[in-house]
């Protein structure tokens, strides 16, 4: 078996696991809650299934591949926002704050992605300029989603917020998923000669993520057994915040 064939079969295996995940989400009644996740897996399956009879280097194969990648990039952004929203569901104040800052988080993530895009080199010899540009944009979107999710995870850990196990698995898995996509695309645009090898590495890593989700997303992962927190007391909280302000003010006076 050649490396190209191995890539093709790993892609099919990814598609098969995607189908299993779609069935699993339907069976467990999680489609409504994780609608963007469902859409993402569906786009992945279609991207694998539609060009199954087409030759790899054909124009239509290219259209389907890049169309699928664009759809997945858009769905990825929506999915990341959806995961952020779901994580803050049981926390009204944090959820409201989360809605207020989501646009700023996205803008910051776009800035991170733009820096990466600016550092992109000229098209290497032997690579199609259009393919190079599309891959650079794809990598930028992946890095944007990655930056957004990392910021979200830091926020959730800092507070701390308890999330459902399924959601934690999704967020953790997607952080790794988008990291590997971004890293592989970055390497691919600099080493187009290693296209097949890097493609195989990426598919194997994606397969790992898909298997992890398949094994860990369960109906019991949606059940919240405990919630961290004290009974809400506005007076107490405001008093506590006042005290924290006082400690900072006094420390500040010590310095100045």
């Amino acid at each position: 078996m050649t490396l190209a064939e191995l890539v093709r079969w790993t892609g099919y295996l990814n598609g098969a696991i995607d189908v299993c995940l779609l069935i699993q989400l339907l069976r467990y009644g999680l489609v409504r809650r994780y609608c963007w996740l469902f859409g993402y897996f569906l786009a992945d399956v279609l991207e694998i299934l539609l060009p199954i009879r087409l030759p790899t280097r054909s124009v239509w194969y290219g259209y389907i591949y890049f169309g699928g990648q664009a759809a997945k990039a858009a769905l990825g952004v929506a999915l990341a926002i959806n995961l952020w929203r779901l994580a803050l569901l049981g926390y009204p104040a944090l959820a409201r704050f989360g809605r207020q800052i989501v646009i700023y988080m996205l803008l910051a993530a776009i800035s991170v992605a733009a820096v990466g895009l600016l550092l992109e080199p000229a098209t290497p010899r032997g690579q199609n300029p259009l393919v190079h540009s599309l891959q650079a944009i794809e990598g930028a979107v992946d890095s944007m989603v990655l930056a957004f999710l990392v910021a979200a995870v830091l926020f959730l850990l800092w507070f701390p917020v308890k999330v459902r196990r399924n959601l934690a698995v999704c967020i953790g898995g997607f952080v790794f998923y988008w990291f590997q996509r971004w890293a592989i695309l970055l390497l691919l645009n600099r080493n187009p000669a290693h296209y097949t090898t890097l493609g195989e590495v990426s598919l194997v890593l994606q397969l790992g993520c898909l298997v992890l989700w398949m094994l860990t997303i369960r109906p019991e992962g949606e059940i919240v057994t405990t919630v961290t927190g004290h009974r809400w007391n506005p007076a107490e909280t405001e008093h506590l915040l006042g005290q924290l302000d006082a400690i900072n003010a006094r420390l500040d006076r010590m310095v100045h």
């Binding site: 104040a93 507070f159 809400w232 909280t237 915040l241 924290l244």
Partner: peptide
């Protein structure tokens, strides 16, 4: 104390979202 304040704010109603940036 700050950890305690974060827990209190995290479990607070929606109108207290302004405490998060504080």
């Amino acid at each position: 104390l700050h950890a305690k304040a974060r827990v209190l704010v995290a479990t607070s109603p929606e109108q207290y979202a302004f405490l998060v940036p504080i």
